[in-house]
Design a protein around this nucleic acid. Structure first.
Lengths: 166, 166
DNA sequence: CCGTATCCTGATAGATACTG
DNA sequence: CAGTATCTATCAGGATACGG
């Protein structure tokens, strides 16, 4: 993938080192494991502080810091809401910017499923309308994309069986 | 994307916490910034130790550790080679497993380009045969994919101008 | 040129304890 | 229930110095 690229090395140096490269910039933001686990939970629909703590298995101070970072980066926003019969709360939601992280998240999952998980992936992602499986792919401009709203997640029954066997 | 998923929460707990979730497993491996920068360099075709140090702007010990980790994880392999007229060396290459990280890498770049970079992305990825731009997308099974070997990278001329203006 | 061991510093996570 | 302050332990990263 790279050969023709090597010739542009002098340009490459200009952005590669320091803050020019987008990958490097993203890592400054998402580098910590906790931050990324928060993003995962947000995609799974977690909205409340204690649920982040419990479901991600991370301490409350760490969650507090991570969520604050994400909010500062405009990945997360807090929305006031009123549960019927209880007092006002805030819930955490992905912003549009945050939802754009879906390909990053899915690509990470897919790679883990393929290379770190033995056998069947624990989760399956399918297209709501058609039921077809969805994956992250490198594709040329013009191909059809699946909208985030059209994605359904299911726990793979085969995996569930595998777990209880242990 | 998540509603139907919430109902399966009891299953979710089983894999979400600890090492069940692929995302969490991947993060155990790729969590550090240096490791990820090494992956970036590998995709750009860097093979020699000192080049990793220079191009990623990371200290030699950090590079040493990161490369060792990646090798242990079967993302990187070292291959002996003989440059004409100099002594034998080893070079670092992505394994097939490592090359599968391409969507992760591209997705990260794209997100950074879209949300952390002001304006034009510094790099452009195109399909070798057709010249069409390529991106990472969430797509249903069956759509055409671009092979890693068919991807060309170029430094965006517009970005280069923007740089020198500063 | 290609690495690695050692030491030191800064960032990050957990435990604990406390407020609205 | 929803956080935050503090304190400490751990770990990644740089500087330095040294062997193949």
């Amino acid at each position: 993938m790279v050969m023709s690229f090597e010739e542009q090395l002098s340009d490459r140096r200009a952005w590669s080192i320091g803050d020019g490269c987008s990958a490097a910039r993203v890592l400054d933001l998402l580098s910590t494991k906790t931050v990324f686990l928060m993003v995962r939970e947000l995609f799974y629909g977690t909205t409340r502080f204690d649920d982040f703590v419990e479901r991600a298995g991370v301490s409350a101070p760490a969650v507090s810091r991570a969520l604050k970072q994400l909010k500062a980066a405009d990945v997360v926003e807090t929305i006031a809401y009123q549960a019927p019969g209880s007092r006002a709360r805030e819930e955490y939601r992905l912003t549009a910017t945050g939802e754009d992280l879906l390909p990053v998240f899915l690509a990470l999952m897919q790679w883990g499923d393929a290379h770190l998980q033995d056998g069947r992936p624990p989760l399956e992602f399918t297209e709501a309308g058609t039921g077809r499986g969805v994956r992250v792919r490198v594709t040329p401009d013009g191909v059809q994309e699946t909208r985030p709203d059209d994605i359904e997640i299911r726990v793979n029954p085969a995996w569930r069986r595998g777990q209880t066997d242990q």
